[in-house]
């Protein structure tokens, strides 16, 4: 008999990367359902489209890099990236938009840097920013929440819109035909209103708001919050980054709101608008591009929170999560360099 030689430890928690990614996706599923309920089938189609493209792109690159294909794509990380991009772009965006975005995320942002674990930037957010800058029109026309729109768009219609060759023309017909199907996001609306001198309170009376937050958006954010808490409970993520993001955003907006409520967005609306919750729990917590130590992660989250607040309030884009995350990604190595845990038996870290 031959005895097997192996390095200690000989036991493992048996929680693989693929399982982690899978569970994260599962935790995000309820939110996807809610998003579809409020914004139609578009989001689901975009997510599925993105996942397909992501798997193909990853497999192709693995083939080119002569690495084990199945072994790599079975870690489910590409699926998570695709999911995050899919839920982030407008549901009725044309098909090539998500294709470009996902391919960019996987090929350029992730694999060109060396694959999973090596990328400097969050792939989904980098792709989102690329799309936002390159195709601002398509990226800023969001579907109105179904409750706000007069008509709901059927699954087939949605498919037609997304895959139509002359997309803009078709979308225009729909836009003309179905009034109010696409419009600016609540944050965008609010920003435009504030710029044109309308107070927060007046702006919130618009159809798109439910009184203090965007219609539908509130519920979507709430489900993401629930999913995030679930992940915390399953120990898929640690609390530091999310707490940093939400805490910093809340504190910043609370201070501003307390100072001048008429021209500032309330902290609660900040927390339950746009991509706040999905960002805080599903995007910023991407461990690859975040800081490593606990204190570092708290700081990393706080940087995102402050940046989100600053860009939302003073920047040119209504929602700022992608930019904030990318900027924080850049600072992650620096944070790791300066914030190290104090090793046992050492006076300083």
């Amino acid at each position: 008999m031959a005895f097997k030689i192996a390095s200690s430890p000989h036991i493992n928690r048996q929680l693989q990367t693929s399982t982690v990614m899978q569970r994260v996706l599962l935790c995000a599923m309820p939110a996807l359902v809610v998003q579809c309920a409020f914004f139609g089938w578009g989001t689901l189609i975009q997510v599925i489209l993105a996942m397909t493209v992501a798997m193909c792109a990853e497999a192709l690159i693995m083939q080119l890099r002569q690495r084990p294909v199945i072994h790599t794509i079975s870690d489910n990380s590409a699926l998570l990236t695709a999911f995050l991009l899919g839920v982030a772009i407008p549901p009725l965006a044309p098909w090539w938009l998500i294709l470009i975005g996902t391919a960019f995320a996987i090929v350029i942002v992730k694999q060109l840097y060396g694959g999973l674990g090596q990328n400097l930037f969050n792939p989904a957010m980098a792709a989102y920013v690329l799309l936002l800058i390159a195709f601002p029109v398509q990226m800023t026309s969001w579907v109105a929440p179904i409750t706000a729109a007069q008509h709901s768009v059927s699954f087939l219609d949605t498919l037609h819109i997304i895959f139509s060759s002359s997309q803009i023309a078709v979308a225009d017909t729909y836009r003309l035909g179905i009034d109010g199907t696409t419009m600016a996001t609540p944050l965008d609306t609010l920003k435009t209103d504030l710029h044109s001198g309308i107070t927060t309170a007046d702006s919130l009376q618009k159809l798109i708001f439910n009184g203090w937050a965007g219609k539908g958006w509130f519920w979507v954010n709430l489900t993401y919050l629930a999913g995030g808490l679930m992940m915390l409970r399953l120990k898929l993520i640690r609390w530091h980054i999310s707490a940093g993001v939400l805490g910093a955003l809340f504190i910043c907006s609370a201070v501003a709101w307390a100072w001048e409520p008429l021209t500032h967005v309330s902290p609660l609306m900040q927390l339950f608008s746009g991509a706040t919750m999905v960002g805080a729990f599903f995007i910023a917590t991407d461990p690859v591009t975040a800081a490593t130590s606990n204190r570092g992660r708290l700081l990393f989250g706080a940087i995102i929170g402050v940046l989100v607040y600053l860009i939302r309030s003073f920047g040119g884009y209504p929602d700022a999560f992608a930019f904030a995350v990318l900027l924080a990604n850049i600072s992650a190595p620096l944070i790791d360099y300066y914030i190290k845990p104090r090793t046992y038996g050492h006076l300083r870290g």
Partner: peptide, 11 residues
């Protein structure tokens, strides 16, 4: 597999 920098080891 590739390290995903999840930081569980540091925890």
């Amino acid at each position: 597999r590739s390290c995903i920098r999840c930081g569980e080891c540091a925890q």
